[in-house]
Design a protein around this nucleic acid. Structure first.
Lengths: 208, 208
DNA sequence: ACAATTAATGAACACTCTGTTTATTAAGTG
DNA sequence: CACTTAATAAACAGAGTGTTCATTAATTGT
């Protein structure tokens, strides 16, 4: 537990640990990881691990903390974007830049994100991701609307959208990142604005 | 590992183990549970645990298997419901019965579901839930539409909707189950058919 | 370039939990 | 009531944990 982040040895060791940690999470999940195996695979002394982390839970939390902070930064920068501006982007078939940036960032950290949001991942990390998405929602509902004029409870809608967004991110990671960040941002924009039913192309007779 | 499910003692012991398991999952998560503590809290001999389960992983899987099977049964019974029929329900502001039944079942098993879908839960269980939802989707996209007429990749839309559904279920469990199963089913129906933007009540000028 | 600093190592420690086995006790069965 | 079998108690080796300490090696600032 030292915070001297300047020393080359510390940087090297921490990077080693984190890389092997990601691999092992993918392989056997957090439960299945032992500090012994982790350090053996990273080719460092087991005692060295405890110089930097309290235990493997602490390692997990430190990794997650960094990612969540960086994602919050991306979403925060352009927090001012309101619904009209977003609609304006949509009318030009152009996704808002901060959504593209989010997908760019996920792409850069794909291996970690894929593991943490996958079947061997950490559900509390998924919840924190949804929390970030909700606080910086594409459709900024809280500021714009009063609860009364909503057709469903506001909390339900926020849960719906933020979960849907995370789900699409999970699909993207799981299916091999074939679409571009820009395309993915457009997908979210389209489904959210047009609605799931409309994007299927089903002739929508009752809506008016 | 015995399958004599008739004996009163077996039923009692298994029920004890599962109840304490749910409590401990809530408290400290799967990682934090030890067979020792589990059996102490359940007031049974540690050896007895191994008479019924290979290890705690096996216990988790057996519990999940049962729930997933029962949910699949609920969703399968009415699998035949097609989009027109669902739209018909919607036009009468009445949710399809099988969606209400799903929420009824979740309510009955609320403590287990809340834990497994919460921050200390099992992400692979969440994935299996989404899988069940996708296979028996309210909007039965696969049968009804060709991929070409879709405005976004079909897989993305399926990920979007199934994740959104699960997210609303998670919200419902987390927020104390205040709404009725029928109300929750209606919420899903509304958001999915009208779209997230429309249900906010925002004047929708560009859609036509 | 060198002395000072400190990260990394290797070995050892007591401790906890695991999964299995054995003989014995107690409960449920027909 | 006799039979079957689930539950118990105690013991076991094995594996991983988190800590300590003396030693080695790498990095830093001057």
């Amino acid at each position: 537990m030292v915070d001297n982040t300047m020393d080359k040895r510390v940087i090297r060791t921490k990077r080693l640990i984190r890389n092997v940690f990601t691999e092992l999470m993918e392989e056997k999940g957090f439960e299945g990881i032992t500090v012994k195996e982790l350090t053996t695979k990273a080719d460092i002394n087991r005692g060295t691990f405890y110089l930097h982390y309290k235990d493997k839970q602490d390692l997990l939390e430190q990794c997650e903390e960094q990612i969540i902070n960086e994602i919050n930064d991306i979403l925060k920068i352009e927090r001012q974007l309101n619904l009209e501006e977003t609609l304006n982007y949509y009318s030009k078939y152009e996704p808002p830049p901060f959504v593209v940036k989010l997908f760019d960032y996920i792409l850069e950290n794909a291996s970690f994100m894929k593991v943490m949001l996958g079947p061997n991942g950490d559900p509390s990390f998924q919840i924190r991701m949804k929390e970030s998405l909700r606080k910086n929602m594409l459709v900024k509902i809280e500021e714009k609307f009063h609860k009364e004029q909503m057709m469903v409870p506001q909390e339900c809608l926020l849960a719906y959208i933020s979960s849907a967004y995370l789900g699409v991110i999970q699909y993207w990671l799981e299916s091999g990142l074939k679409e571009s960040p820009r395309d993915m941002a457009l997908v979210l924009l389209k489904i959210t604005f047009l609605g799931p039913l409309t994007v299927t192309g089903f002739p929508n007779t009752f809506k008016s």
